[in-house]
């Protein structure tokens, strides 16, 4: 039971990562490359949260 639950969780995580990657690609193509990046405009603490597999509710 525990193994099944773990597999389900892993499958969900993989699916989320795949979805996330697709979303990034879509955004990059929609907004266009060549814009000006705003340096240091994202939370440094995000990297310390460990694996982030959830896309936010839209």
């Amino acid at each position: 039971m525990r193994t099944a639950h773990k597999l389900t969780w892993m499958a969900g995580a993989i699916a989320a990562i795949a979805g996330w990657t697709l979303a990034i690609s879509a955004i990059a193509s929609a907004a266009g490359v060549g814009g000006a990046k705003l340096a240091n405009n994202h939370p440094a603490g995000l990297a310390q949260l460990g694996p982030v597999v959830m896309q936010i509710q839209r």
Partner: peptide, 22 residues
């Protein structure tokens, strides 16, 4: 802003610096 926002628990944030038109 050509970025991705993710959440972790009650926290959310953009994973990369945002972009604006040149």
């Amino acid at each position: 802003f050509a970025t991705t926002i993710v959440e972790h628990g009650a926290s959310y944030g953009n994973t990369a610096d945002p972009s604006v038109p040149a």
